[in-house]
Write a protein that binds this DNA or RNA. Sequence first.
DNA 1: CTGTTAGCGCATTCAA
DNA 2: TTGAATGCGCTAACAG
Lengths: 321, 321
Amino acid sequence: MSLKKVATELGVSVATVSNALSGRGRVSAELADRIRRYAAKAGYVPSQTARALKSGRTDTLGLVMPDLTNPLFPRIAQSLAIEADRMGLGVLIADSRGSAEEQDRALSRLVQRGVDGILIVPQRGTTPARQSVPMVVINAAADPANTVSADHIGGGRLIGAHIAQLGHKDVVLIGDPLSDVQRDRITGMTEALAAHAKIRTRSAPDGLKDLVDDIRDGATAVLTTSDLLALRVLAELSRHGLQVPGDVSLSGIDDLPLSQAMHPQLTTVAQATEDIAERAIAIILSQIRGEQAPLLGQTIPMRLVIRQSTTSPKPQQGSQI
Amino acid sequence: MSLKKVATELGVSVATVSNALSGRGRVSAELADRIRRYAAKAGYVPSQTARALKSGRTDTLGLVMPDLTNPLFPRIAQSLAIEADRMGLGVLIADSRGSAEEQDRALSRLVQRGVDGILIVPQRGTTPARQSVPMVVINAAADPANTVSADHIGGGRLIGAHIAQLGHKDVVLIGDPLSDVQRDRITGMTEALAAHAKIRTRSAPDGLKDLVDDIRDGATAVLTTSDLLALRVLAELSRHGLQVPGDVSLSGIDDLPLSQAMHPQLTTVAQATEDIAERAIAIILSQIRGEQAPLLGQTIPMRLVIRQSTTSPKPQQGSQI
DNA sequence: CTGTTAGCGCATTCAA
DNA sequence: TTGAATGCGCTAACAG
């Protein structure tokens, strides 16, 4: 059903139909009404394609993610898709499959498809190639290209402060230092704990095997940079007969579904993906409209979720009294 | 950079440029070559939008998922996105947010955006409204609308047979009976075990609390319909001091990352999402081209992944000898 | 208030 | 072998 068909069948001109339906041109109230009713009845749907050709905009955003398989990304994707939809935008996805080259290829494919802007969660340690359309980078403050993200440093501080407050004096931090996100989290933890505890930092996944020694050597808590890693740590500890939180406290970050399914339920930190999505879409929309400067480096607070895997350390054997 | 600009700057007609670049029309070899080189240098990119308007096709598929947050869907989405890309198609996503109404709304939004076809993983127990474009339903054999899916019944059989072979005689099956997928999995398990063991079926999540009683009553294995549920079961068992696999064997389905991270590593069943994606895209492409009948109900085999959570049952106290 | 026209970028027919 | 003209569906500028 095209505009023209509606026009001829109604005996009026296409322009009048267009005006009546868009409400922009001046059309007499009765005629406009008649047209609207007829169009609705006939099931007229404007062609986005034609509109896009005319306007130069497709009302579509591209979303590039490093690996749709990563357990955190679904939530971001979902929030982004919902918010984009609320703003009348479509979302075209692209998986950058673990390589920087594929990431750049994905970007240019999206541009060729005519997206109005691109949302990207970059590969670890890469800087995506600039494109001819506005781009919003969702990553971490440690990335100079970052546009908006959760406050991973603040999240690290939250969990660090929680552990400090519980009275732990010897703590292991474990995460992947190649990831901006995980590095920020470690940074925050370190800041919050520095004045209160001895800190040992281990790299995942290699450092996993050293954990048990660290604990035998006096560490009373293990803070990880992700829930999945925490589950892996828990496995390692159980294998050596160590109890959580009895012998060691343990924490994750992300608040994935598994953090509630495991035993003990995991103390973790959640990010407000809805807020991040909302902000990201707002920023890219204003860039598309050329309204305002990029507004770099925005950061959304995280939220501490205390469950059962963290407690105060057992009193030391040789302690006071 | 439009076709026309290339044409004028080169002093030839648009048609000639079009022909040279597409290779379809007859253009002299030298001229064609000159045009191709110039276009490449000038960074000419054909407008997908204009092409779509002309051809009536957008080379874009819509993908509707019930909840992007479900831990299984990322893999399907990823496989679908990669395969679609390989076929030169874009993928527009839509989240149906847990409601059948939102699902239908998502469908019509995609149609309005001009997608050539729709891939849908339907909400539990719903039948998506027919649309004016071809649709491929990815669900389970129990859904009469199903087009292509993993062989969930077969997957259930695999795990059931594995447990039977280990010698278990009293087994608990637990899953959500509202989901076609989970129901099929239970069906398969039941088929494989019926001749060998007493079967107790529990509904998740309510039945979780009955598991410990079942085990005290003699059950030696718990088969779940998903890895996440298995993790939850493991938590419940640990809480009551039951060891896996020492006291009870446990299995999941899906082969999520967490199945390797947990302790003990989970015996599970994996689905070949790449194959499903490939098949789904092939089917929808042929439907779009009007080439052949829908080919309903195709099913892709699953694969048993034996890890550490399943072993033979401990010899019964009062057994033979 | 309503209609006519032109053009977005491309592919396709028909003419030259 | 190449070029001119047409139209996909829509909107905006202008004419009536």
